[in-house]
Write a protein that binds this DNA or RNA. Sequence first.
DNA 1: GCGAATTA
DNA 2: TAATTCGC
Length: 881
Amino acid sequence: MKLMILDGNSIVNRAFYGIRLLSTREGVCTNAVYGFIAILGKLLEEEKPDAVCCAFDLKAPTFRHAEYEDYKAGRRPMPDELASQIPLLKETLDAMNIPRYEQEGFEADDIIGTVSRICEAEGWECVIATGDKDSLQLISPRVRVKLVSTRMGQTEERNYDEAAFTEQYGFPPAGMVDLKALMGDPSDHIPGVPGVGEKTAMDLVRRFGSVSRLYEELESPGIKDSVRKKLSEGRDKAEMSYRLATIDRQVPMEFAPADALRREADKKKLGELFRRLEFFKFMDKFGLNETGEGAKGDPDRPAPETAWIADGKALEELTGRLEAAPFISVVCHPGLEAVAIAEENRVSLVAADDLGDEYDRFLGVLFSNRVKKVSHEVKELMGTLPEAGIPAADGFLFDTALAGYLISATSNSYTLDKLAAAYLSESIPTRDAFAAQGAFSALGDREAAGRAMAAWASAAGRLYGVLSGKLKEMGMTELFSTVEMPLCRVLADMERAGFRVDPKRLREFGEMLSSRIGELEEEIYRIAGGPFNLNSPKQLGEVLFERLGLPAMKKTKTGYSTNADVLDKLRESHPVIPMILEYRQFSKLKSTYADGLLKVIGPDGRIHTCFQMTVTATGRLSSTEPNLQNIPVRTDLGSEIRKMFIPAEGQVLVDADYSQIELRLLAHISKDPVMCQAFLTGEDIHRVTASQVFGVSQDEVTHLMRTRAKAVNFGIVYGISDYSLSQDIGVTVAEARHYIRTYLEKYSGVRAYMKEIVERAKHDGYVVTLMNRRRALPELNSKDHNIRSFGERVALNMPIQGTAADIIKLAMVRVHDRLNREGLRARLILQVHDELIVEAPRDEVERVKTLLVEEMEGVMSLSVPLEADAGSGENWYEAKA
DNA sequence: GCGAATTA
DNA sequence: TAATTCGC
């Protein structure tokens, strides 16, 4: 029989320092518990012990403190982020039915020593899992030690039995105590013999076997005089150290190995705990995801009655109820082969195969404005419905993903199963359970898919109650229903419309780039003295800083930095540098833009980006597959790409953008008189800033001053640090700090705002935009100065950037609405944070320009005007005024 | 500062 | 995964 005993404190420590900080969406730190469970799982799998238990230290002083007051005095206190996890870990072990032992006056090691002694006595094999070497002294024919370490989230371990130990140390395990008695252990504050280090101590233990023998034979000629002197002077210390280092194997505790025999975990408790800690991976691993009693948040709630709608009569009844219900929730199979509809306490499954033509008619009613629906990822649903002949789905009350995002904008996913776990304490299948291909084909398992869809529909309906309550408490109901929900339709339409590109010109541009890239490559290899992979920063670094001997200025984690900043400083040092910079620019344009865009042109000759509504922490949208929000504009060559974005035949592109929206919002929010004045009189804000910061009149502002002032404005808006600002404008950190200080002296309203917003954020734990969009800021309470500073910059920046996001989103909803209402054929096709692009029939251009400017400027009335400029043209480059 | 894409 | 570069 085999027992495994874990050194709880030691392993949780390794886990904590070996895994980056993780926390739940409510900010509870979980990395140490997570790591502990991962390690435990691995150990159990490898060792398959018959019994498992865990030993912990207690805070109370031990017999060792009585012996030696400095004992462990030098230990750094446990960080709060770890201390808070210890109770969670103990709760986890309890739920797993793994006994834990702790004893006042003793350390975990003593408990381990005692447990292992009892095991030996009873003929059990004992495996000690720990991160510390202290336990190595316990090794015997029946006792092994597994030394656990974690590196970059990977668990590594070394096994020590008698043979392995003796091979490594050159003496038997018991000598470990003698070794420590001589060399000491700074981490435990065991003094050892002064002047005797590891080398000497190892040698002495190997030769004499033990401290007592050593002192008996102290006069032996084999000991150097200097060492003999140290030993004889340090005898007291050696003896005390010996006692401190010796593990007490006689802790008074009731223990029998059979007490720790493995038992099944308490699935209910463990499931609840893992849900709370958001350990969804472990839930699968521990089999806690089956819909059983243990998985339900509310055991009193009866499972909803689920039925397939198999005939016309049942369908008719359902249809009748839908229009009468205050709301229902809907989940669709991605191919629309089936839908699940949850009412208050029943779920109906409707499959295309069962109903023929009636199914399509049913979908028509279901997705009309007459049926009020809750669903998940409404924009995506709106994107698939046109394929089923429903181009204008309507009547969506609530999107659970969007609500989840507004409630906590910094989570990394808002899948329905995660929302159900977080807000209903309920475990439901993931989307794969029904979204897989072919669930509704002849060979598919439609029952299983139906069950999963029913679970989703039912959860979505209940999430509506919970999440809408939270939105209301947080004051975001209006933002949700006047901005985010309506935006689903706007974005779905924009995605479907797409942006036409000119593939011929794009290809030609790519070919031009290719040939220049080829020339550059050849020339660079010739100068560098041989070919290498230019796209590999690692190889480039080696060539530049080793082969060519250029001075390396910056390093990255893995080697030399070769970014544009670094290379630019080396521009004059070697003729190859400008070529590399040019190569970089060209290959970026070619791979990301020329080739990248060609790959995603649809059969309609247009590019359909996908707007993400739940990604950014500030409330902005993001754009993927492809990202149309980072099409080049800054350089002449890059902006060529914009000439390939064109309108449909007979149409024109209209482009409108906000002028300085973020700085205007800063002026409005901070009420800074100087900044407000600048915007009210229509001055050049960067010039004004330069004149303020450099203390000159506006006509005396030089180009360099304006550029730097612009960077400072930019820095304030994006919340960058003094360090990043110094990098940006190429001055020292001290100088950058000086600019910021002067800036805040001149714009004293901004300084006051900064102070106030940080204080409020600290108090509330979050910041909000003008429309009450929220971002939580746990960073402000960090003990790490860098993290706290980051939190402070976010506190300043998010209300500004987030309000800009609110404003343009509302403008989009209104523009979309007005284009439709006024019967125009013009369509919104793209948003780039402060810019809207509309494709308009030639004869609508002027009306559309006016409409865009009116709606964009009229979103809100602030203490400074919101200004938008519109232009038009035959391509994006031309249209951007 | 953030987010996306490409490349090794 | 890390480094780089594009946009706002």
